[in-house]
C-alpha cells in the first residue's frame, strides 16, 4: 500500500495552528479527504520547475506608494460597531495574562 501523505496527528496539529477546534468525527473525515486531495495535487511533481520563477502576483506592479496626506478614516466608534464585546473605546477579550 502507498504511504499515507497525512495522518490524524498531523491533522490535529494543523487544526491547532489554524485555531480550529475539530470534533473527533471531523478529524477522521478531514484526514481522509485531505489525503485524497493531496494525492491528487501530487501530479504537479511530474513537472520540472527548477528554472521556473514563481508567480505570486500576475501583474508587474511594484511598490505602489501614495502621498502621506490626512484623509478620511473610520472613527473609533464606527470601527468598534461590530465588536462582539467592547468596553469604552476598546475591544474586550478573555483575560490573557494571569
Amino acid at each position: 500500500m502507498k504511504k499515507k501523505i497525512i495522518d490524524i496527528d498531523q491533522v490535529r496539529y494543523i487544526a491547532h495552528l489554524a485555531r480550529l477546534d475539530l470534533s473527533p468525527q471531523e478529524e477522521e473525515k478531514f484526514t481522509h479527504q485531505l489525503e485524497r486531495i493531496l494525492s491528487y495535487v501530487e501530479k504537479l511533481q511530474e513537472l520540472d520547475t527548477k528554472d521556473i520563477p514563481p508567480t505570486s502576483h500576475v501583474l508587474a506592479v511594484n511598490n505602489v506608494f501614495r502621498e502621506d496626506e490626512l484623509s478620511f478614516s473610520l472613527s473609533s466608534q464606527e470601527a468598534l460597531s461590530n465588536a462582539p464585546s467592547r468596553k469604552d473605546s476598546y475591544f474586550k477579550v478573555p483575560k490573557i495574562v494571569g
Binding site: V41, L44, Q45, L47, T49, I52, P53, P54, T55, S56
Partner: peptide, 9 residues
C-alpha cells in the same frame, strides 16, 4: 512553492 512555479507555466 511548487504551485507558484506551475502558475508561471
Amino acid at each position: 512553492g511548487k504551485a507558484l512555479r506551475v502558475r508561471t507555466l
